[in-house]
């Protein structure tokens, strides 16, 4: 009798949970919220930064990049951006030259001193190959510092904004570490086998 009661309670609970999950799922679908909001920014600087980041992340995202470049060229807030470079970048993108597009976008971001509007045709920032002006570190969404032109003070180390991948190069330290790892694996397996 106790088992029957127990199993009935368990079945009831199971049913209730399944129903709750179904209701929750239905309710969740009624109000879809996208984490990424789905809206483009209105200022040219953010649009160009996003375009550059998209290309760095995935060179195939040309449609999304073009959308942002088009928006940047018609933006009412072009501060901090060399629009001529953006125009050239759009042409390079259309011709399929991703590398040139990325270089032009890097040159298009202009350092602006705090409190002064960005000149429309500044001289190119002196960058070595493979570097671009570092955008200010992103602040959490919703904060006042989310979009701010890069000031001269913020322009520190120039690094290309793309993933950094380390590789095995066979140095003494790497080889020693692999060897130590192998010794540990073998020793551990031998001891486990003996300990059975």
């Amino acid at each position: 009798m106790a088992d029957i009661r127990t199993e009935s309670a368990g079945e009831w609970l199971r049913t209730a949970l399944i129903l709750a999950a179904a209701i929750g799922l239905a309710q969740a679908s009624a109000n879809v919220a996208l984490a990424h909001k789905g809206k483009l920014p209105t200022d040219a600087l953010s649009l160009v930064r996003q375009a550059a980041a998209l290309l760095a992340q995935d060179p195939k995202m040309t449609a999304e990049v073009k959308e942002r470049l088009d928006a940047a060229l018609t933006s009412r807030d072009p501060r901090g951006v060399n629009l001529a470079n953006v125009e050239q970048a759009r042409s390079a993108l259309a011709s399929g030259d991703i590398l040139a597009t990325r270089r032009l976008l890097a040159d298009a971001i202009v350092p602006v001193s705090a409190g002064t509007p960005a000149p429309s045709m500044p001289p190119s920032t002196s960058t070595t190959a493979g570097t671009m002006p570092m955008p200010p570190a992103a602040s959490p969404p919703g904060s006042a510092e989310a979009v701010r032109p890069a000031t001269a003070e913020q322009m520190a180390t120039m690094k290309m904004a793309e993933p950094l991948v380390s590789r095995y190069t066979g140095t003494l330290g790497e080889s020693t570490t692999v060897l130590v790892g192998l010794v540990l694996v073998v020793a551990g397996l031998v001891m486990l086998r003996r300990g059975r």
């Binding site: 980041a53 999304e64 955008p135 992103a138 690094k159 993933p163 095995y168 570490t177 790892g181 192998l182």
Partner: peptide
């Protein structure tokens, strides 16, 4: 520990690009 050391050298973790908000 041995496996972790080997993976650390042969498959080191990547660091992605500095973040850009809004994408």
């Amino acid at each position: 520990a041995g496996f972790i050391l080997i993976l650390t050298v042969l498959l080191p973790p990547v660091i992605g690009p500095a973040p850009v908000e809004g994408i």
